[in-house]
Computed example of a mutant assay.
Amino acid sequence: MRTTILAALITFVIDQLSKWAVVQGMNLKEVGQIDVLPPYLVFHMAWNRGANFGLLSGHGDLLRWGWVALAVVISTWVMFWVRRERFSTLGQISAGLLVGGALGNAIDRIVYGAVADFLNMSCCGFANPYSFNVADIAIFAGAFGLILFTGETKNRA
């Protein structure tokens, strides 16, 4: 359980620090776009008021607070799950990534009214129109890790 809490805390802090550094420190909220290593890495400001890729973004404050509540409920459920089961270290880290990322995006919705997305990556003739953030990466990696590293034969240390 301690491993999960530590992974969640580290993920949350890295997510919030990266958002602060880029959105506030580099003033991306005003500049809009900063070419870092174009087209491979571009900081492109996007305020996500919906779900993944901005889905359901036109439903205002009801959806905003719904996403915050959902993040808290899922994070709480995952923490109870980790406590109840005996996950491997990788399973615990995966759970921490998911929880830290979910809470990082929830804080954005509380503070800004939307999730601050700024990473944009394109390659090999594919122009990616979407931006994402560290929390999004952590949520994806954590969910994938929970699939891989938990279960009947995989959750025992």
Rank of each mutant, 00 (worst) to 15 (best):
W20M: 05
L9A: 14
S131M: 06
G101M: 07
A106R: 10
G54L: 07
M26D: 06
Y40H: 13
G96F: 09
R2L: 01
F53H: 07
C124L: 06
Y112W: 04
L119F: 12
L28F: 07
I139P: 06
L90T: 04
A8S: 13
V73P: 05
V78D: 15
N155H: 09
F126H: 13
I10P: 03
T89Y: 03
L55N: 11
W20Q: 11
G60C: 00
M45E: 13
V78E: 15
D136L: 01
G66F: 05
F80P: 03
T3S: 05
M26V: 02
C123R: 08
D61V: 00
R109C: 07
Y40V: 06
F87W: 05
G32K: 02
A46Y: 08
L148D: 14
A102S: 12
A116R: 14
V13R: 11
Q16T: 01
V72E: 15
G142D: 10
R86V: 00
D108W: 05
I10S: 10
V99W: 15
M79W: 11
L148A: 13
A135F: 09
F132P: 04
I93G: 07
V78I: 14
F43S: 07
K154N: 08
G104M: 07
A116L: 04
L70R: 00
V31P: 02
A127Y: 03
N27L: 05
F132K: 11
S131E: 08
G32R: 05
M26P: 00
D136K: 01
L6G: 03
N120A: 03
H44M: 04
L103M: 05
V78S: 15
R84V: 00
V31S: 08
L55S: 13
G125W: 00
G54T: 03
L37S: 09
V42S: 04
S18K: 05
R86Y: 02
A102M: 11
S88H: 02
G142W: 14
A7H: 09
A95Q: 10
L119M: 13
V82H: 12
S75M: 07
T150G: 05
C123Q: 08
D117Q: 11
G100R: 14
I137N: 09
I74L: 15
G101Y: 10
T4D: 13
F12Y: 14
A102I: 00
Y112G: 06
F53I: 01
D35H: 09
R109T: 06
N133P: 03
L90I: 00
D15K: 08
N155V: 00
W20Y: 14
A95G: 09
A95F: 06
I107F: 10
L97D: 15
K154R: 14
W81K: 04
W77G: 15
P129V: 02
